[in-house]
């Protein structure tokens, strides 16, 4: 991110980045592991985060994220470039996660990551646990636990759209491409999921 002290002459990041990524993908398809290592480093945080938010379990997220990248490497030859590499990779991770969760239906075990230092200073969160909230004594850890438990009550397709859109900021269009449905379905799932969450978390949401 540029600060005021940096010159505002940054080149167009999109064109060089996409051509660089295309080059990395081509090289990785030919078996160039250092090139694939670069791709993993580019997307490891986002892929891990999506899986973690879906599973609420760090160990499961670690395994699934690694397996997603391993599978993506073995399936590189089938990547035809119709979508961006990122979207294609995301689709692999999403499918793997949903399959995993379906097999473990109703057997959730929370293994939550810690909150970073900035959480206590986030104005939105501070407002939530202020004396204006219905439950005054709630702290962030309890809120985190309740939030994850509520998310796990949603079905996988509904949880996925909430995680992708409301947590990770992915657009409706991109979600539709990742999940393999139309934008209307994404919007309806998102609305329904939010309604459900609102009900589960009514005690913790400021009215």
């Amino acid at each position: 991110m540029l600060t005021m002290s940096e010159p505002a002459t940054a080149p167009d990041a999109n064109a060089p980045a996409s051509s660089l990524e295309g080059d990395l993908v081509r090289r990785a398809r030919r078996g160039d592991l250092p090139a694939y290592d670069e791709l993993v480093k580019r997307y490891q945080e986002r892929i891990y985060a999506t899986i973690y938010h879906m599973t609420s379990n760090h160990e499961d997220a670690n395994d699934l994220a690694q397996e997603s990248f391993i599978k993506a490497y073995s399936a590189l030859k089938s990547f035809k470039g119709g979508s961006s590499f990122y979207t294609w990779l995301y689709r692999i991770a999403v499918n793997k996660t949903i399959n995993f969760l379906k097999q473990r239906r109703n057997k959730h075990h929370l293994s939550l990551n810690d909150l970073d230092f900035n959480a206590e200073h986030d104005p939105d969160l501070v407002a939530l646990i202020s004396d204006k909230t219905p439950t005054r004594d709630v702290n962030l850890s309890e809120l985190q636990k309740k939030l994850n438990e509520a998310l796990l009550k949603l079905s996988e397709p509904h949880r996925m759209v909430v995680v992708l859109h409301d947590v990770q900021g992915v657009s409706h269009e991109e979600i539709a491409e990742i999940v393999g449905c139309n934008i209307g379905t994404v919007r309806s799932r998102l609305f329904y999921a939010r309604q459900q969450l609102q009900g589960y978390l009514a005690d913790y949401i400021k009215s």
Binding site: L115, L147, I205
Partner: peptide, 28 residues
Amino acid sequence: DPLKQLLKLKRHEIPPPGYFSNFSGDVL
């Protein structure tokens, strides 16, 4: 809006320190 504010809490959840330093190496 209040729900969206609460969901932002998820963005503050981070894996253990140094987790991503070894991740790509483990994959390869």
